[in-house]
Each structure stands twice: as C-alpha cells, then as structure tokens.
C-alpha cells in the first residue's frame, strides 16, 4: 500500500497547500515526492511529538499536512499532540501509519500496532481510514483531503481488490449472495485471509463479506444491515486487540439499533500468546487469524 500511497501523494502534492512530513522514514518509497515537493517535503527527524506539533502549526496557517511514520510511532508516541494540538482544533493534519497490525512481522513487538484503532478512533473528531485493498488507499487519501479534518490512515500489505472500488464507506460490500448464512466483517488486509478461506472451501455462496474501511461507524450501510438481519450471524475479523477494535464498535452500533444476533464472534489479535516472535503470518496464526482457523469457524457455524 505504501507504493499506492506514494503515487496518490505525488498527484495531490501539486496543490501547494499540501505538506508532507516524515519522521525519518520512507527510504526507497518517497524519493520521488521528496524531489517533486521540494521544501514542502519535510523530514522532521526521529521526533514524533514535535512532528505533530509542527504539523498543527502549519495547518493553523492554512496548510494540509500529511505526517508519516511506522504506525506505532506516529500513534502512541505522540497521542497527546494528536489529541490536543490537532483534534481539539479540528485541524487538517493527517496521520499516516505504515504496517498496521503485525505488519512489521519479525521486526518485533515495538514495531507492531495492534491497539492503534482503539487509540485513534477515540480521539475527538478523528476519522480512521483502514484500506483493505490497494485501491482503497487512493480513495481514502482523496476523501481525507476533501474533508480537511483530522484523520488516521492505517496502511498494511494490501492486495488488489476483487471488486470495483467506490468512495470509502464505513462498511464496503466485498461479496454477497442471496443464499448467505453468515455475515463476515473484516478490518484491513486481513480480509485476504477470509477471501482465501471462502475460495478454498467453496463457501462463497454461504458468506456475505464486508470490509470496515472507515471509523467511527456513524453510517452503517444498508447492504450490511440487511445481511445482518438475514443471516443473524456475524463474524468479525481484525488484526487488532479486542478492546477498542471494530468488534466492540460494531456490537455497540447494533445494540443501539436494537438489532439482535443469534451468533457473534470476534477473531482478533491476542498479542503474543506464546511469547515468541515471527513474521506477520506467524502472528496472525498465533491469534487464530489465519485462513485455516477462519475456515474452521465458518464451517462450525454452517454445520450448527
């Protein structure tokens, strides 16, 4: 997704009100925009709190500012600057975190961000964008710029989308079938594990698949609500801890709407259950977010 992000930034950066700040990252990804943006490309060094404060000052004077780093560093390290300097003043500062979830794999726990959605979605007036597919990156960036309000963009290792992309909804429809028995909602590129699970077992007709692209869930779209009402079974899959993740968000939304389910299950990041480390697939499997475990859950629900 980083390449797609770099491509869309190089397009929107033609607007001389756009500033791109990096916290000393972007080797072999952002050289092009560095060259084309000239003095509007700023490397503020390894100093994330200052980066957000400076961005707020620039935004106050009329600039639209993207701030980029590895997801954990640009969320937890400078959360207070995001809360006060940016969100309290509804400034157009856009926080971009690369490697959401276990994205940085063997780099280790310091580089993972499995609590970022909880933090960022709780910031006042903040909209979170979590592209599932590569194509979602461009539509998200364009909407973020148009909105001009605080935003968090969580990038991961994305694949091409199986569907035609439109504007990012809170919940996008990825696949649906009139015979579906189960509704599955996924956060981010983990959706590819679900797609794989559906294809391997031929479950396509039994599952309606949705991606949660935008938080908060202030507008649950009609096809998703219809699917929930029809199937009464909701499986939520996210590379994020349960607390503050989309399963909690969606549960609250559905209860507020008085929508009842027969079955509800959350598959989510469990942290480091074995205390051992590996690549992104390893950590997904440790948390039961792998294709095999997703298949197993779907199978259980279809047979019971």
């Amino acid at each position: 997704m980083r390449k797609a992000f770099s491509n869309i930034i190089s397009k929107v950066a033609k607007d001389d009100k756009v500033i791109f700040i990096t916290g000393d990252l972007g080797f072999s990804a952002f050289e092009n925009i560095q060259e084309s943006m000239k003095n509007r490309f700023i490397n503020t060094g390894v100093a994330e709190q200052n980066m957000i404060g400076v961005a707020a000052g620039l935004a106050h004077k009329g600039y639209k500012v993207f701030c980029y780093s590895i997801a954990p560093f640009i969320t937890y390290r400078c959360l207070e600057q995001i809360r006060i300097d940016v969100c309290f003043h509804k400034l157009p500062v856009f926080v971009v975190g690369n490697g959401g979830g276990y994205g940085y794999g063997i780099m280790g726990a310091t580089h993972h961000s499995i609590e970022d959605i909880a933090c960022m979605s709780s910031m006042p007036g903040m909209t979170c964008y979590i592209p599932s597919f590569v194509e979602d990156v461009e539509t998200s960036v364009l909407e973020i710029l148009e909105s001009g309000t605080p935003a968090y963009l969580r990038l991961g290792l994305g694949k091409k989308s199986p569907i035609q992309q439109t504007k990012p909804e809170c919940i996008n429809t990825v696949s649906s079938s009139p015979e579906a028995k189960i509704t599955v909602l996924a956060l981010g590129p983990i959706i590819n594990n679900i797609i794989a699970a559906m294809e391997t077992e031929g479950y396509k007709e039994k599952v309606n698949l949705f991606s949660a692209v935008k938080l908060p869930f202030d507008n649950l779209n009609a096809p998703f609500l219809q699917s929930i009402r029809n199937t009464k079974k909701l499986l939520v899959v996210e590379e994020h801890i349960a607390r503050g993740g989309i399963a909690e968000h969606i549960a609250l939304s559905l209860m507020n709407k008085n929508i009842h389910l027969d079955k509800f299950k959350s598959l989510h990041a469990l942290g480091y259950p074995s205390g051992l480390y590996g690549d992104q697939n390893y950590h997904q499997a440790q948390s039961g977010l792998d294709t095999g475990n997703i298949q197993k859950t779907i199978k259980e629900w279809l047979t019971n």
Binding site: I42, Q49, G53, G57, Q81, I84, D85
Partner: peptide
C-alpha cells in the same frame, strides 16, 4: 480551544506550544 482569535490553541499540558509555534514560523517562512 476555539473560543478567541487571540487564543489560537488550547494549552495546559506542558511542552506543546513550542512545536506549534515552530510550525507557525515554518508556515510563515514557506
């Protein structure tokens, strides 16, 4: 926040004003 033009930012948690002022100065420079 957002009450008076002369108070452009909410402050109170220490260490926030200097980076913001540096950002404003950078904007003026640009």
């Amino acid at each position: 926040a957002n009450k008076f033009t002369g108070i452009p930012f909410a402050l109170g948690s220490l260490g926030h004003g200097f980076p913001i002022a540096a950002g404003i100065a950078k904007a003026n420079q640009l």
